[in-house]
């Protein structure tokens, strides 16, 4: 099975295949690049070469990720609607103060920036249900796919297929099904029920946002869990069988503990992704009805870019808040994957 195969070095075939596919444009490109690199090597010696190999990557990454990470803080403490830093007055913690100005944190309508807090609460609801369902369904699917069943490769592929689809495609596929005159309502009517306006009811909109994102990403987590299940040594089960251990006990004492590191990775990864939910739901519901499915990332996008008045400072402050949450989750993730590598 594909999962059991690790990628093997293929010296001979690899070389001939590269020659066959890439042929001359690649050779010309690398040939040209050879000139400066050879000159550098002659000038500065082998010892300096690693730096030149790493440089382009670090330059791109620094320019587009690391530098922005720092500028983000600068934005969050300046005001105005101008994009360029020199035209932005320093306002200190005003943006944060505005974001966190709430009469009662449990009630978004008492907050000055209630859209942000509605986004936060919607994101909490979404994350709670989406991650729970994601882990549950991935686990059940992985357990079933790990059994000796006919057509296992096909079934595994089937569950993986939606993972490849773009968020826009995913959203449009489901929007088409869920429309007032869509096929789901046709089914409801044929069962003698009334059609439901799914995108008019806040509860239904949230339900479908969760459902669709579980549908789209479940295959990914299933794969990780499946890899974990296949790594469990079979002799453990044989030994348990010899001892006549009860099946529930085998599941809770062997399968689950040994799968737990993978489960942790899946839970934290799913959390990190779910907190940043935007694409599918934005196309599916547009955040509506009202603000019922508007999440934190959409708040950042709307505040900074989509609104007539672009409030970059506020968007940056909200990004910092989101960044802190993600940082904590990432530390959890590193801890989880370290446990996995050790276990």
């Amino acid at each position: 099975m594909a999962l059991d195969e690790t990628i093997k070095p293929e010296a001979e075939t690899g070389t001939s295949r590269l020659n066959a596919i890439a042929a001359w444009p690649v050779r010309v490109l690398f040939g040209i690049l050879d000139v400066p690199f050879r000159a550098l090597q002659r000038l500065l010696g082998i010892g300096s070469m690693p730096y030149f190999f790493i440089l382009p990557n670090l330059a791109f990454f620094g320019l587009f990720v690391v530098v922005p990470l720092f500028i983000n803080f600068a934005y969050s403490v300046t005001g105005g609607t101008n994009l360029f830093m020199e035209n932005r007055p320093y306002v200190g913690g005003e943006q944060y103060g505005f974001l966190f100005d709430c009469g009662n944190y449990l009630d978004p309508s008492t907050c000055r920036e209630d859209r942000f807090w509605r986004g936060v609460y919607n994101t909490f609801t979404f994350v709670f249900f989406q991650v729970s369902l994601m882990v549950l369904f991935s686990l059940v699917t992985a357990l079933i796919l790990n059994r000796e069943i006919r057509g296992r490769g096909f079934f595994r592929a089937a569950f993986f297929f939606p993972v490849l689809l773009s968020p826009v495609v995913v959203a449009l596929i489901w929007k088409w099904i869920l429309l007032r005159d869509g096929v789901l309502n046709a089914f409801l009517v044929s069962m003698g029920l009334d059609p439901i306006l799914f995108f008019v009811s806040p509860a239904w909109a949230m339900f479908w946002a969760i459902f669709v994102s579980v549908w789209a990403h479940m295959g990914f987590y299933t794969l990780i869990l499946l890899a974990g299940l296949q790594a469990i040594p079979p002799d453990l089960y044989e030994a348990a069988e010899m001892d006549g251990t009860k099946r529930e006990r085998v599941f809770f004492r062997i399968t689950l503990p040994l799968l737990w590191p993978n489960m942790l990775v899946v839970i934290v990864l799913a959390l990190i992704k779910a907190v940043q939910i935007f694409d599918e739901v934005f196309v599916l519901t547009g955040g509506g009805p009202g603000t019922a499915t508007q999440f934190v990332v959409q708040y950042i996008y709307t505040t900074g870019f989509a609104n007539q008045i672009q409030n970059f400072g506020l968007a940056a402050a909200a990004s910092v808040v989101l960044g802190v949450v993600l940082f904590v989750l990432t530390l959890l993730q590193l801890a989880a994957s370290r446990r996995k590598d050790e276990g």
């Binding site: 990720v65 922005p68 720092f70 983000n72 900074g304 989101l322």
Partner: peptide
């Protein structure tokens, strides 16, 4: 930096 997502640097990345 494996995990820095674009969602938290939208504004400054847009500036760059």
């Amino acid at each position: 930096t494996l995990m820095i997502p674009i969602t938290i640097i939208l504004v400054p990345a847009y500036l760059v």
